[in-house]
Nucleic acid binder design. Structure first.
Lengths: 334, 334
DNA sequence: GTGAAAGCGCTAACAC
DNA sequence: GTGTTAGCGCTTTCAC
């Protein structure tokens, strides 16, 4: 900026004002300065500007990783959510900083705020550390989490209505005639736990009692899913339907079932969760509970910004809808 | 930092040194300062630090969007690549800034560098603007692009060997007995163009001539793919195999074919490209050309860092491998 | 071993 | 309309 000032024969303040488009500076001078800046390929140094202005328009999106499996970022649902956040943030002119953090040390996410790198945080998934999140909220860190609403929650969440989603999926399977609906998913995670609660509730709604041995806690790992299915068969646990906690899990399970000669939906009806893009093109096309991903990014950003604007923290549940395709046995006219 | 200095009864310089772990400062003082910082939940302001130090360890990952389709970030391959980059950057202690840019104005990507927000750039896909990229390189912007190697290229690329990949896929289909292999993909994009060149080359290798009317330029949009297939059938263009430029396209096409009563692989053998996670669990399991995604993130970061370390720009081609599954008609023993 | 002072690149009173 | 000056939060000579 000093260079430009020298070349333009004015002071740096004038350059600063000109580049900011201030009406105070002579239009002619402004034009000359703009021209000069362009030819020098100069842009204002945002770091210095932020320092001076005392703010920042970067939002950190933090994706926890499971320290046990050390899995890479690969679930299509979360990846899509990141895409959706990128779009929503870009739209509003915010920068997005993508960071990973150990899922057992969610509170480390606060660093990115304390160091002034980001004005606020979107945390993808609350994992098992409700307490750490609450203490971040007490510290005054501005953040929203994608996840479930929990009792005693001091922070804002945005998420689908998992209870309703689980209920919808299970009710659909029961209505189709299934009587032994397997639930598969890591119920320690709050979102999945609520889907499981929906599974229970749907049974109760129908005047049935869910067989607890049909609820299987399985992490999102291909091998574990195949293993689990093998185990069930080996122990002679029969089931005529499967409600999987994610589409990825449903697809992996269907593929594993097929390898064991089990037909979907003839032998086992399947419903997944998320409605990822490929669900529709899977074979059989996957019945699933849709999570509104595009809205999710918008809602998360909206929630964070309103919090930053001083409004009270406010959690949102997005509507979920059952999408019936062939995997749950709905015979469709050709 | 000034607060801490006051509370600790020392000067800011001492606090700065203590927090940096300098051996110059008394161990006892250092401990006291560290303790104080922790209790105040204080962390160094990275923006100010960067300003003073004159550097920055943020890498911008820029994903162009097609201004025509205005599609959101959703292709599983690119999403995975972003995940892979996030992992590779986190591993090396770099921050990742995720940004989007109009694919017709790739040169705008340079802004993030000129404004000092990022030390370097990873551009995902080179699209149609080789020229803009070259001029960025001339300007001295440090960046790598995920894409194809092109003649007269002044910048670094990392990408799969698309020619070899296309050749492999097509040769496999021809070897299986196919004689009319449809190529589907937007050949204007350099990577896809090279896959198409591989399609041609494989025909030549086999002493055949590819029918030019079997090369269809189709963008990555579900409706367009279905449309194209409808059009082909309407015009009575027959084909006994399909080489799709991406798995997403292959899956969408298979689903569309199935709706028209065409069986895969019995009537049409299909090979995709990318080997996304779901390819294996698709039905029929998708034969495809594997792009080494995890390596891709590493290689991109590696290339950028070596460039920043002053080494000469260096492009890399990652090996691609054919993965034969059922969609190309390989009968597999049970 | 510690402090005082200058300066990274910018903006915003406050003069004129 | 434009320049002078101070200061955002930090690091680092240079003194002592």
């Amino acid at each position: 900026m000093a260079d430009i000032a020298r070349l333009a024969g004015v002071s740096v303040s004038t350059v600063s004002r000109a580049l900011a488009g201030s009406a105070l500076v002579n239009a002619e001078t402004r034009g000359r300065i703009a021209e000069l800046a362009r030819s020098l390929n100069y842009s204002i140094n945002i770091g210095a500007q932020n320092l001076r202005l005392g703010h920042n328009n970067t939002v950190a999106v933090i994706v926890p990783y499971d320290p046990n499996t050390r899995q890479h970022l690969s679930d299509p649902f979360f990846l899509s959510l990141i895409g959706s956040l990128a779009d929503a943030l870009t739209e509003r002119g915010h920068d997005m900083l993508l960071t990973r953090v150990d899922a057992d040390r969610l509170d480390q996410a606060a660093q990115v705020f304390h160091t002034g790198r980001a004005m606020g945080i979107v945390l993808v998934g609350q994992w098992r550390h409700h307490d750490q999140l609450n203490s971040m909220a007490v510290q005054g860190v501005p953040f929203v989490v994608w996840g479930a609403q929990l009792p005693q929650q001091l922070y804002a969440t945005v998420g689908g209505n998992n209870l309703a989603g689980g209920r919808l999926a299970t009710a659909h399977l029961l209505a189709g005639g299934a009587r032994r609906v397997l639930f598969m998913g890591d119920a320690d995670l709050p979102e999945i736990g609520q889907r499981r609660a929906g599974w229970l509730a749907a049974h109760a709604d129908a005047g049935l009692v869910a067989d607890a041995s049909l609820s299987r806690s399985v992490p999102f790992v291909t091998e574990r899913i195949q293993q689990e299915l093998a185990l069930l068969q080996q122990h002679g646990v029969a089931f005529d339907a499967l409600f999987a906690a994610s589409d990825l899990m449903a697809m992996t399970a269907i593929s594993a079932l097929r390898q064991r000669g089990v037909r979907v939906p003839e032998d086992v009806r399947v419903v997944g969760y998320d409605d990822i893009a490929l669900a529709e093109h899977f074979h059989p096309p996957l019945s699933t509970v849709r999570q509104p991903i595009a809205d999710a990014g918008q809602a998360l950003v909206q929630s964070l910004l309103s919090q930053l604007a001083g409004e009270r923290r406010h959690s949102t549940q997005l509507a979920t809808a059952l999408v019936v395709r062939d995997s749950s046995g709905a015979a469709r006219a050709a």
